[in-house]
Amino acid sequence: MLAVDGLQAHYGRAHILHGVSLDVAAGEVACLLGRNGAGKSTTMKAIMRLLPPTGGSVRFEGRDLDGLAPHAVARIGLGYVPEERRIFPDLTVEENLEVGRRPPRPGQAPWTAERLYALFPSLGAMKKRPGGRMSGGEQQMLAIARTLMGNPRLLLLDEPSEGLAPVVVDRLAEALLGLKAEGLAILLSEQNPGFAASIADRAYLLETGQIRHHGPMAAVMADAGLRARYLSV
């Protein structure tokens, strides 16, 4: 479904991604694991073309994304939830969702605010609250819900568990498992392998802008040596 091949990216003169290649199949949850600064967020941004890649290719459902503007990437079905969440602070929960709303996709039940309130009940209880006055966990739910309003075919989820209380992380995992069960493909990035293990099928281990290892999530979790080399601090 998503095929990233030899992706290169620069910030100014700093070379961040050195040929990242990965695949996400339909209905699958893949996970990018790596420490701070490994290039997880940059990979996400380069796929969305928020940071235009300097080399390599990204194909989504067979279509080359080269030359597309970020809004066009979003329209063909890639939904992006940034690490910083980037909720619009002056807009209410409802209004934040409205910004994300796109027309339904054929063959896919469209997301509505009501369906999302059912998925994230805490959001339903604060429809009129401005985004700037929500807790971190609530903002994370809203960021995901807002992106889902665009009826994406694949969700790019950048470090969703970062800075959240354990109980909130559990609720988030539950919601994401629900999305997975509905057949939504997800590319997740995480530093926290425990959270990732609860939802991901496969893992890519990223270090200094390169994929060092990939395999089934369970195998990565079982290999203490791998985790020590690429994840522990």
């Binding site: 969305m48 980037r86 992106t147």
Partner: peptide
């Protein structure tokens, strides 16, 4: 930028 990432031209 976030508005664009949500598919708005």
């Amino acid at each position: 930028e976030m508005v664009a990432a949500l598919g708005v031209d």
